[in-house]
């Protein structure tokens, strides 16, 4: 516990300061503070509290059930275009902000996914998600969504390939946190 507190000294200082700020804002009816806490912080917290524990349970289950051989075969070094399509599909059906994809990237890498596929997964993760697309089409129109997707896919696959190659060349690793 002490080690945990020590490791996140900066984070905990900020959290405590913010907690004091919250209590002060509510007691003194400090308007900007109430907006920051109620409209912004609370909304983000709700999204995060819903998305992340679920994601981490899935990661844990994936870790114990899926073998390295299977992952390597389907999305590993020699998986080719099929591997690319698989990681893109995986990214498209997930929900949550990009930082929820980082732990997934860790577990995929640990199980033998190729670096290029890891970064294509990250690029695709935010490019299009099934639930978000309906939102996008609703507010910005079908033409916008289709055009944005058609242009984004090649650009971000290319970025994935460049990042993956760079990552391998510099012997990069993904940490467990």
């Amino acid at each position: 516990m002490k080690e945990y507190l020590n490791k996140y000294k900066f984070d905990f200082s900020l959290i405590i300061a913010f907690a004091i700020f919250t209590v002060y804002s509510l007691l003194a009816s400090f308007q900007p503070g109430i907006v920051i806490v109620k409209n912004n912080f609370w909304e983000f917290l709700k999204e995060m509290i819903l998305a992340l524990p679920v994601m981490f349970i899935l990661i844990g289950l994936f870790d114990v059930w899926v073998s390295k051989e299977k992952v390597q075969k389907h999305i590993g070094e020699s998986s080719g275009i099929k591997g690319v399509l698989l990681v893109m599909l995986l990214a498209f059906v997930q929900a949550g902000p990009l930082y929820a994809a980082f732990p997934v990237a860790y577990i995929l890498k640990k199980k033998g996914t190729s670096s290029v596929n890891i970064f294509i997964y990250l690029s695709s993760y935010t490019m299009a998600k099934v639930p978000m697309l309906t939102f996008e089409i609703g507010f910005l129109g079908l033409k916008f969504s289709i055009l944005r997707l058609i242009l984004s896919i090649p650009v971000f696959i290319l970025i994935g390939i460049i990042m993956g190659k760079y990552f391998d060349k510099h012997k990069g690793t993904i940490n467990e946190v």
Binding site: L14, I57, I59, V64
Partner: peptide, 28 residues
């Protein structure tokens, strides 16, 4: 599996909270 996932979640939680705090303030 659940324990493994929970451990990772607890380890990233403080950083995540402080990032959300910063975002909330910037957004204002």
């Amino acid at each position: 599996g659940i324990k493994k996932g929970a451990k990772q979640f607890i380890n990233i939680l403080p950083t995540l909270l402080s990032v959300i705090i910063l975002i909330s303030i910037v957004l204002y």
